[in-house]
Computed example of a mutant assay.
Amino acid sequence: MMKAHTTDTSNIEFSMLERSKTKKTATKKLKCSVGSRIFDVFNVILISFMMLCVLLPLIHVVAASFSDPVKYAAHEGLLIFPEGFSTKAYEAVARNKNIITGYMNTIFIVVFGTTLSMILTIIAGYVLSRRNVGLNRFFTILLVFSMYFDGGMIPFYLVVKGVGLNNSIWSLIIPTAVNTYNLVIMRTAMSSVPESLIESAQMDGAKHWTILWKIMVPLVKPTIAVLVLFYAVSNWNSWFNAMLFIRDRAGYPLQLVLREILIQNDMSMMTAGAGGDEFMLSETIQYATIVVATLPILAIYPFIQRYFVKGVMIGAVKG
């Protein structure tokens, strides 16, 4: 009798669980109303359209760069596949000394510029995130003020020229070493680290330098990864400061060389020996140069993309 009673009780409990699951499923189905489904469909269509707007120009550029110059010149409209596969444009790019020199200059700027920027941003972010530092709020206000107001292009040029950086590759690194927006992100991330960790480290005899590199930096790695990408992309795409300060063509970064090719259509060195196909080849060379200039950032981005939301939003929610 006891076994039968136990069996009946378990059956009742099982049926009650099944009913509760059924009710939850029905509630979820009710929540997915017609309006929400329409909204979801609209979002999918909108995002798909935006994705096409981004992808189609990229596909056209890559396809055109691998196209035969003569066949591409006769093509009209959007290009999805290469018109007669050819690597003549990339061979011409490889022969151009300006592009190779520009590539080396840009790599130097990205590596040393990003390294210097991150060191300064991490140190300044740590100082500004400490509550017991004198005039902390005052310096923070000054930094935020500089983010909205500056002296303008002429004073900037005069300052760089006055300190002897004109026509030097360091004029593209030192004057713009710290970005205020990135510094604010770093300060916010470090401010979110519990103060108890800092106090316990100080009780164990740790100095600020040890706290910074042994505690702070490991805890804000997602933010550091995001800012590294921000600085690297900014240094890679920078051309305006080079146009202001660099006079020697051997010091041109890649983006300034690319600007000359696209705007001034300077193909004299790249189309030498092309004969009657010189103009047609120049069209595909422009696209090949764009691919060469964009490929490194596109290759690095997927590995850092997962840190983006976590790195930028860290410390944004309080409480």
Score class of each variant (00 low, 15 high):
M1W: 11
M1P: 06
D8E: 09
E13N: 05
S20T: 10
K21P: 00
L30F: 08
K31E: 04
R37Y: 09
I38F: 11
I38N: 12
V41S: 12
L55H: 05
L56C: 09
V61M: 13
L78W: 12
F81C: 10
P82Y: 06
S86Q: 03
T87Q: 09
A92H: 00
V93G: 01
K97P: 02
G102T: 04
Y103S: 15
I107S: 02
I109R: 15
V110N: 09
L116H: 06
M118L: 14
T121A: 05
R131K: 12
R131Q: 09
N132W: 08
T140E: 05
I141P: 00
M153P: 00
V159Y: 07
N166Q: 10
I169Q: 04
W170S: 01
W170K: 14
T176S: 03
S192N: 04
P194E: 10
L197W: 02
D204K: 02
H208E: 09
K214M: 03
P218V: 07
A225V: 09
V226M: 05
N235V: 04
A250G: 14
G251K: 14
Y252F: 13
L258S: 15
L258H: 14
T271H: 13
G276P: 00
S282R: 13
I285Y: 08
V291W: 13
I297P: 07
A299C: 11
Y307Q: 14
V312D: 00
